[in-house]
Nucleic acid binder design. Structure first.
Lengths: 268, 268
DNA sequence: TTCTGGTAATGAGTAGTATTCATTATTACT
DNA sequence: AGTAATAATGAATACTACTCATTACCAGAA
């Protein structure tokens, strides 16, 4: 275990790049020499910036490939090739394949979070916001279902999970949901009967399982059904705002149902 | 691609054993020769039975190891060694590692199903049954959380998933839940507002996510909280079984009935 | 501009594991 | 006991994550 100039750190998570990163940018330098980049590649920037670019490129390629073929079928060799780096280089930026998976998952959450925040800001009313969030999440995980697999791949190290970058990313993401729920409770639309983490797990867990069902059955309309079904569980659609039962309203409701029944067959 | 006497079938799933299986049992034969079994090993049974035994042994060993170390860290070589067979033998019984994972997952569901059915039979009342099911499932997946990983490992082949043995096992398992829910709807305790698959996904998905949260935070009491929280989402806690009638409870009951009638009688 | 210490990048080599298949052992039955 | 069919074996193959000695590159100094 001799300590060469860039040894592997024991601490998990957070490789920042080769020894550098966050070193102040200095000057513009000449353009890339060998292996001219795929894109037009204008004059290259400082060393630190190049390092950051390279890390991003690797993550981006890995993201694409994992989304397309899944984690197991994605090889480091191919990632390296498509990112225009050597295999060894990947390991300068990421401890191992799992750490790379972690970074990809973070990127996924980051993207989802940005869209979620923007979308929530646009809507009015707790119910509308929740419907948007549910649909946004469901469509996102359907589109990139392979990425979700990374949660399992990564979870092995639940030791130091709290504090990891991935944990933070996930936290930021669910915070959007939590915020909406809190708003609901404050405005009295939602009755807070249980710990918030349970509601959260039901929401995301339910959506993930719904995704699997939908992907097996391949029905477009199922997305709507799942979204509405799950939202209705969090906000009772007929929600009596006051929390007190309104007898008059109930009577009216029963009247309406009775009328409808008169014209319909008695259910089995 | 020459077809030797036992070639690999293209069809996925369902390897039954080497060419045999379901051939009629014939006679008792002498005991095991080399590699005397770990257990006392009484006189061995017919060829077909031995084959079945061997398959079970492999699955059992794989089950143990995957539950203990996870799928990736479990090697075929070690499974073979602990099951007292050669590496190649494993491939006589299972197409590949993934198919073995599938068999393990099936065994897991089978075990859960038996316990679930027995437990449900013991309880009275939809609510009690659901609480039992939720706790049973949650404790089961906490105890053997690594097994759940196999769902993802296996899911790749969603093409021919329906019809697979695994699909059937899973179906049998969730059928227990479905049965209880149906009972709830029929007795009016539960309002059937949404498609049953949504309720099901919320139930199991919510429990799985709750499991993750619980395993990270390591609080015993969280299990109870999650169980009650999720069950309450399916059966509003105020739901009256019988007996006294304060107005609020009655209203809740009527709401449920009204919803049921709407869902059942009114054509979409 | 040239030099130089240190950093980044490389890719052939190592180690480990799923999978195959020619060969050998075991049956069940005559 | 003989034998055709079947089951079992494990060394060889094919891949892939990961390492590390070597090389290329860069930023500043002279």
């Amino acid at each position: 275990m001799n300590t060469t100039h860039y040894q592997k750190v024991n601490a998990p998570e957070r490789r920042a790049g080769p020894e550098l990163m966050a070193k102040t940018a200095i000057k513009a330098t000449r353009s890339v020499t060998r292996k001219s980049r795929a894109n037009g590649a204008a004059a290259k920037r400082t060393r630190g910036e190049k390092v950051a670019d390279k890390e991003e490129a690797i993550v981006a390629v890995a993201y694409e490939m994992i989304a397309a073929k899944g984690f197991a079928r994605t090889t480091i060799a191919e990632i390296a090739r498509k990112a225009n780096v050597a295999e060894g280089t990947v390991y300068l930026y990421f401890e191992n394949k799992e750490a790379l998976a972690s970074a990809v998952l973070s990127a996924f959450y980051k993207r989802l979070t940005a869209q979620a925040e923007a979308g929530v800001k646009k809507r009015d009313g707790v119910r509308e916001k929740l419907i948007f969030l549910a649909r946004h999440h469901l469509e996102g995980i359907i589109r990139e279902s392979s990425i979700l697999e990374l949660i399992t791949v990564t979870d092995r190290n639940s030791e130091n999970y709290e504090g990891s970058a991935l944990y933070q990313m996930n936290k930021d993401y669910v915070a959007v949901f939590d915020g909406v729920m809190r708003e609901g409770v404050l405005t009295g639309v939602i009755a807070q009967e249980k710990a918030s983490w349970i509601t959260r797990d039901v929401f995301f867990g339910g959506l993930e399982y719904a995704m699997r069902t939908i992907m097996i059955r391949r029905r477009k309309k199922d997305v709507d059904a799942a979204v509405m079904g799950i939202v209705d569980m969090l906000i009772p659609p007929g929600a009596v705002q006051s929390g007190r039962t309104d007898l008059t309203a109930l009577a009216g409701r029963l009247e309406a149902v009775a009328s409808k029944l008169e014209g319909a067959a008695i259910p089995k």
